[in-house]
């Protein structure tokens, strides 16, 4: 096989990206568990572990840029490398947002929030599943799953709007809860953004297979 060292580097890139994907899924699951159970210790662990996510992003970015510099990849290789370069950004942001949620949990009585605001548990559940399935679609090159995951984002957006309305109602009836409600709104916004990043991962998965994004040809 020609270019065996290039192919080894490409494989290593895929291995690292896979590790980062599963690290982010684990962070997300732990973060939501910490939120659900008001587990401040678990929340601290998630925050500390976020550095690992950030370090992986840098490592993968450097590997991608070096491959572009030294190997001038084309065709499928170019799509794989550019997809990796874009997806790590979304993974890192998901990591940041879950760490931010965990910081809020430490400040707040989060269990209270999880139960108090009716639609937050469903938001958390859908967003987590979106990320998990987006990563699966990426790993399996499954465009059908990617398209299906994108559709679920509408429900997350709808729930976010419901949460905002619920929180407005709560503050009207219980002005002493205003501070908490602001934090809950921010948490809901983070969950909504996590859904958006899952959509981005799906779009890059489609690009990796087709060279197109939203029916627009990129390469």
């Amino acid at each position: 096989m020609l270019r065996s060292s290039f192919l080894n580097d490409l494989n290593q890139l895929k291995v690292d990206l896979n590790k980062m994907c599963y690290l982010v899924i684990k962070q997300l699951e732990n973060g939501i568990d910490a939120f659900k159970n008001d587990d401040k210790e678990l929340a601290k662990t998630v925050i500390l572990k976020d550095k690992e996510v950030n370090d992986m992003e840098r490592k993968i970015e450097a590997a991608c840029l070096n491959l572009i510099l030294r190997q001038q990849p084309i065709a499928r290789d170019l799509r794989d490398i550019s997809t990796a370069l874009k997806i790590v950004t979304d993974l890192e942001r998901i990591g940041d947002q879950i760490a931010d949620i965990c910081e809020t949990i430490i400040r707040l009585n989060a269990k209270h929030a999880f139960k108090m605001v009716e639609d937050i548990p469903e938001m958390a559940e859908i967003a987590t599943k979106m990320v998990r399935d987006a990563i699966q679609s990426f790993n399996d090159n499954d465009i059908i799953l990617a398209k299906e995951v994108k559709l679920r984002d509408d429900r997350v957006d709808e729930l976010f709007n419901n949460v905002k309305l619920e929180l407005v109602e709560i503050t009207k009836n219980a002005p002493d809860q205003i501070d908490a409600c602001i934090e809950f709104t921010i948490i809901a916004k983070y969950l909504e953004r996590i859904g958006d990043h899952a959509v981005n991962i799906c779009e890059w998965t489609e690009f990796q297979e087709t060279g197109e994004m939203d029916h627009t040809r990129l390469i």
Binding site: M1, R3, P73, A75, R76, D77
Partner: peptide, 10 residues
């Protein structure tokens, strides 16, 4: 074509 241009044979 893909295999040739990406250097997988030649």
């Amino acid at each position: 074509t893909e295999n040739y241009i990406t250097g997988r044979f030649g």
